[in-house]
Design a protein around this nucleic acid. Structure first.
Lengths: 188, 188
DNA sequence: TATTGTTATACTCTATAACTATA
DNA sequence: TATAGTTATAGAGTATAACAATA
């Protein structure tokens, strides 16, 4: 668990430095994410389940198969939703469920040849579309952003700092609550 | 409209360079966004509407008031959802709807004093929580990521490159469809 | 008993359509 | 007629709970 990071002094008014949305991390992430999803849904129209179906297919094609539950967790969906996603991909002939010989409760999800071909086509579209999305940044900045996001996601995925953050928030609340008890509550 | 950006030669296997999810822009963005939302929902528990309520409140407090519809578009929600969000914020006494003297169809959403105080507390928690979320990056990288995301979001918000990206995808499809007509369709 | 995957169900969120008022 | 906002309704997406199979 990391020690409490120091605050950026420039972030005095709001989380982003000034109060507006333009520098708000949540807003910038949301804009980027929504734009990506919209664009990826278009590029992945050939695959059931939209951009999430493509991610499942990419995992089935390129990653060592684990449990459906682990994949669901990595993709941020419920395990029941993962079942439906894989159902649709399997019905389209893009992936197969194979029994895990080591633990027969598990189903390994692997891409079929048709799945790999479909993924190739979708990824070709996606690579082009991504560059359009990032066209406001020059080449170096595009690479830097991809690298930073990759590192951040790897950290979040492995260390789960959300729990730390929520704990820190709780600590603040406890501290403010204690300070509040020491002095009369503000009117209003 | 930007000219077609060149592709990164390293991105030969998948959108991210290798086929795995770890370098996939969609996956990294999704992980970061979901983690942020989860953490921000916790930090903004005092405000109705969770992290989106906070964004509306931040806009009401710090940005020049526009129409509800414009705000909804900036935040990526439907205008009807924006009505409900503002309803809840107003019921909690955090924002007020004021008639626009220039055009009486519009409602200007402005933060009340209580709203500004609540926002202050929430943003204090949020600043701390954000640093935990980004704790896997050093100070320079955290700043760089914030800057790049801010520039990217500003570009997406102003230039709307999603339309360009979808158009590019359509062009690829048209080209591949034409090529397909020139040769016999692949079996299977 | 605990866990994986599936199914059935309920719920939340979001989008669609219709309405009022202003322009 | 067109637009901003609201309301009512329907739909998609999601989570919850119960189940079977396996460990």
């Amino acid at each position: 668990m990391p020690s409490a990071p120091q605050h950026d002094p420039a972030a005095a008014t709001g989380p982003g430095g000034d109060g507006g949305l333009g520098a708000d991390l949540g807003w910038t992430l949301g804009v980027a994410y929504r734009a990506y999803v919209k664009m990826a849904a278009d590029a992945a129209a050939a695959v059931p389940g939209s951009h999430r179906g493509r991610q499942v297919l990419a995992a089935a094609a390129h990653e060592v198969p684990g449990t459906q539950r682990a994949l669901a967790q990595r993709l941020g969906v419920d395990r029941t939703a993962m079942t439906y996603l894989i159902d649709d991909l399997a019905a389209a002939g893009l992936v197969e469920r194979r029994p895990d010989p080591a633990d027969r409760r598990n189903r390994q999800v692997v891409a079929t040849d048709a799945g790999r071909r479909a993924l190739e086509g979708v990824d070709r579209r996606l690579r082009t579309a991504e560059e359009y999305l990032l066209a406001g940044l020059d080449t170096a900045d595009r690479t830097a952003l991809r690298t930073l996001l990759r590192r951040l996601a790897a950290y979040i995925d492995s260390a789960d700092p959300v729990g730390d953050a929520c704990q820190a928030v709780d600590d603040i609340e406890a501290a403010e609550s204690a300070a509040m008890r020491g002095q009369p509550p503000a009117p209003g």
